[in-house]
Design a protein around this nucleic acid. Structure first.
Lengths: 221, 221
DNA sequence: GTCTATAAACAGATAGAC
DNA sequence: GTCTATCTGTTTATAGAC
């Protein structure tokens, strides 16, 4: 018989702790977040963290795994499983599709704020979490965007301009989430949602088309 | 007579504490950084923080003031004091100039990593530090970039496309600093320096020209 | 202006009852 | 699986010697 009044089982407590931890790690950072705070936010006992995750570190690792999965699904798994298209126009369209669905996630889903804050903190924290995020998410995604941009422009897949260009695309997208407190104030927006995501996607997609146009090799037309 | 062996005076201790704190606040976050750590890094006594800054909060505020000044000077004060140019080509050139000098600072100056990490943390921390950074730096800079982009394209200064476009420009620039651990690995770069800054600036400036070209009203030509 | 010593609060982890 | 109680170490701030 459980002591708590509601009918929550072990798996539910585990998930609640994980989401509470993700929010707090994202908002305050790993070291700055106390296990007492997490347990309190999840309405669970402090000792339950040790029971379900082995400790604070284990809870952190569980958050990282969740974030990697969430981000990969937001980008759209179909883009990665499909064959690389031969037609430059189709490749260009796919890049716009990835950008639009990523913006839709970042500026539409309530979880996105925590996911992106968590990630940006880990990028500046060398360690196993960054390592697996890089190998499982960042590098494969960047390589795929490079391949698509290369097809769209006729340039080499690994040319410096293409690789830097893919990062400049990633940068403008992630900024609208990380810098949303600034953007919202300057744009007179409130909470991020579909209308805001649409306006951002329109500008970003125009930038993608402009990048492809100015970087297309003339002799490949 | 001072107890410490070297000839450091009060002002020097104050500055050393401030730089040590900036590095640590940027790397680990405000709450996660202990005053012991700061004092140890600055080779000063723990009690000296209370003496020079009144406490941990005062030290944080001093870091914020320094960061705001450093960022403003990196963008180039001349751009803000000068008159808004009438010629679209001159306005476009000024935007490229701001982008290039900002990239030069972010991907060239050793302090830039700490400055930008400190700032991105404060953007997600509502409070007086964000408030003054927004009013003193972010908003004036964004307004100025909007005004220049508007001149360059012939659009209205406060049109949504211009405002969002200015943010997409800011985003791609700041990303190369915040995401440098990812960029460096994918580009086979080591520490950020002038050659890297030059390559990034070339792509970003091409993006600026492409943005202006695709967003120029035909009837203003 | 710098130092030591210490107070009072807080951290993560764990043992053991239920 | 959840809880209380507690151990051990660390935190910021401060009082007072020099």
């Amino acid at each position: 018989m459980q002591k708590r009044g509601d009918g929550r089982n072990g798996e539910e407590t585990r998930a609640t702790l994980m989401f509470a931890a993700l929010e707090l790690f994202a908002a305050k950072g790993y070291e700055a977040t106390s296990t007492r705070e997490i347990a309190s936010a999840a309405k669970a006992n402090i000792a339950s963290i040790a029971y379900h995750f082995g400790g604070k570190k284990g809870l952190h690792a569980a958050c990282a795994t969740f974030v990697a999965e969430r981000l990969t699904s937001a980008i759209g798994t179909n883009v990665f499983e499909a064959e690389l298209p031969d037609d430059p126009a189709v490749a260009a369209e796919l890049v716009e599709q990835v950008a639009t669905s990523l913006i839709g996630f970042l500026i539409g889903q309530p979880q996105a704020k925590a996911v992106s804050s968590f990630i940006i903190r880990e990028i500046n924290r060398p360690g196993p979490v960054f390592e697996s995020l890089y190998l499982d998410v960042f590098e494969p995604v960047h390589r795929r965007i490079c391949a698509l941009l290369a097809r769209a422009t006729g340039q080499d897949t690994e040319s410096e301009t293409i690789r830097i260009g893919a990062f400049s695309l990633a940068g403008q997208i992630i900024y609208f989430r990380l810098g949303y407190p600034i953007v919202a104030r300057r744009m007179d927006w409130l909470e991020p949602g579909s209308p805001e995501a649409g306006k951002i996607a329109a500008v970003v997609c125009a930038n993608i088309r402009a990048f492809i146009e100015t970087n297309t090799r003339e002799d490949s037309k």
